[in-house]
Design a protein around this nucleic acid. Structure first.
Lengths: 159, 159
DNA sequence: TATTGTTATACTCTATAACTATA
DNA sequence: TATAGTTATAGAGTATAACAATA
């Protein structure tokens, strides 16, 4: 498909994915900003909401964030009153991190924000096309080995 | 569509777009790395390849990169021998930037790389689905006001 | 006065290494 | 000896302000 002039990459599928994806990432960050939370930090609390209590190391592994960076992330979330650190019973080196009631509430509120975001992105697209698009994206994500719900750009490789 | 457990955002259309998009952006950057060029710098030379000669300010406007950041970008491209600065004839404050033959060649070689990247991303997807996907993405990009061939994350707002 | 290119500075992110306390 | 959490440092990338030359 060629929809006009411009540089060679304009009609490349991977460029289009990257272009629209970056737009969505920015829209998501902007939607989160009024809640005083970043996409990274939302990754942490949404994971805690789904899995329950986790150690910092488990969170780091699960999200692909380095444990060094996890420290400050949990510090901020704790200062905001959304998570609590508790000493792990069996392994006294580790902390268990769990959502506070306020954190669980924030997680739910942001979860309810997502349909609005999706509507804004897919505005004007017939519902059939929307479903088709989602199905194609899931198919690519699975084929490429992307983990469900894990955003690649949170990443940082282990040592 | 719900394809399993995990956090609330896992099946959100905008999350999926952002997730797959970030993967594609990383794959593109990795494919460019052996050529010694970044996605940002490729944005510059691909634009020059399509439009011809442009001033730094015109490049900055066209790509959504701030002119302050354009300076170092052109410095690097010039040091690599891919572009040349020439004094603008009518406006002696400005520089015209143009591709060298080597730069034009690199632009073409990278342009030929894109189909491979697209094949890798869409591996296993029937050609009909691939076309459908591209069409849906173009439709969203146009509706959201994204400019053809311009990646949003190159961005930096003017003063 | 406004604009083009430039430089300098600061601030955010993240990559790396090293430390401590536990295992 | 290895691991969980922590801290410190340095390097990208980018945002902001200010400057010289020219319009």
């Amino acid at each position: 498909m060629d929809t006009g002039g411009g540089p060679a990459h304009s009609d490349s599928l991977s460029f289009l994915l990257s272009q629209v994806g970056a737009y969505c990432a920015a829209a998501f960050a902007a939607a989160l900003a009024p809640y005083g939370i970043t996409p990274r930090a939302y990754g942490v609390i949404s994971n805690l909401g789904a899995v329950g209590v986790m150690t910092q190391q488990q969170l780091a592994n699960s999200l692909g964030i380095h444990r060094n960076n996890m420290v400050g992330l949990i510090d901020d979330l704790e200062a905001s009153g959304w998570v609590r650190r508790e000493r792990h019973q069996q392994d006294r080196r580790a902390f268990n991190v769990r959502l506070t009631p306020e954190g669980a509430d924030l997680t739910r509120r942001i979860g309810r924000l997502l349909p609005e975001l999706d509507d804004a992105v897919a505005d004007g697209l017939p519902i059939r096309d929307r479903e088709r698009l989602a199905r194609l994206l899931v198919s690519i994500a699975q084929a490429r080995g992307l983990r469900r719900g894990v955003h690649p750009s949170l990443g940082a490789r282990p040592e």
